[in-house]
């Protein structure tokens, strides 16, 4: 539990979910919907993509495709973090809940904190950390939703601005390789162009092209 309180990222997460709650309110979703999305989806970027695509009139299929593509990044996270929790006696089903909790913040924190935890207690530790963070996020979602409903426009706008700020900065902080930095910059730059197409999957178009260009530059530099 102390780990939940000690991480700076918890604060960022709190701010992000305040923003998600406010966003859900302003795009006319119910509070139960917003809370269920936090507990079930448990991935801030996916929730924002879901809320903003559905809110801007995309169909369920278009939203599902955008979310599916954005969620691919969870796969390498799960693959890289689970070996840290395994012992020879561990069965797959013991890891299902821990796997559900894996998202950007928990992934980063696992790499930082798990080495200090005895191996046989790591799954329990991850469950505790996951549930603690989830409780923080549910509180923030409800609070953000309520604030957006009741606050003057200026403060509601400030809460909505938390989302892009927190995501931009935490992504920038996680950028280690040239490909990551290029993907972030190109992704920002290409979206306004792609949005002129009005396809409903503009984010996918700009994301896949920017990501592929960034990867291409990375691959080309490796060959040099």
């Amino acid at each position: 539990m102390r780990s939940v309180g000690s991480t700076v990222l918890t604060l960022v997460l709190f701010a992000t979910y305040l923003g998600i709650g406010a966003l859900a309110h302003d795009t006319h979703f119910s509070l139960a919907w917003a809370l269920a999305s936090t507990a079930l989806v448990w991935a801030g970027p996916a929730q924002i993509i879901l809320i903003s695509t559905l809110g801007s009139g995309a169909t369920v299929v278009q939203a599902a495709i955008a979310v599916t593509v954005s969620a691919i990044r969870l796969f390498p996270m799960v693959v890289s973090v689970l070996p840290m929790m395994r012992t020879p006696q561990t069965k797959r089903r013991h890891l299902v809940l821990a796997t559900h909790f894996i998202a950007v913040t928990l992934w980063v924190e696992c790499f930082r904190l798990l080495p200090q935890v005895p191996r046989e207690r790591r799954i329990a530790f991850t469950h505790g950390l996951g549930i603690g963070l989830c409780a923080v996020c549910l509180t923030a979602t409800a609070l953000g939703y309520g604030l957006a409903a009741n606050l003057p426009q200026l403060f509601a706008a400030a809460i909505l601005l938390l989302t892009p700020l927190a995501f931009l900065l935490s992504t920038a902080r996680n950028c280690r390789q040239l490909a990551d930095i290029l993907a972030l910059v190109l992704g920002l730059a290409l979206f306004p162009l792609a949005s002129q197409l009005h396809t409903g999957v503009d984010i996918l178009i700009s994301g896949i092209s920017a990501g592929t260009i960034a990867y291409g530059v990375h691959a080309w530099r490796e060959r040099e």
Binding site: V69, P76, L190, S195
Partner: peptide, 30 residues
């Protein structure tokens, strides 16, 4: 995985840009 991560990052960047360029709700008043 490097490609997957680059695409995922770029999609997230697109979402950030979307909120700023086509702001929802109260943010549109800014």
């Amino acid at each position: 995985l490097i490609w997957v991560r680059a695409v995922a990052t770029a999609i997230l960047a697109g979402v950030i840009a979307q909120i700023l360029v086509q702001p929802p709700g109260a943010l549109a008043s800014v």
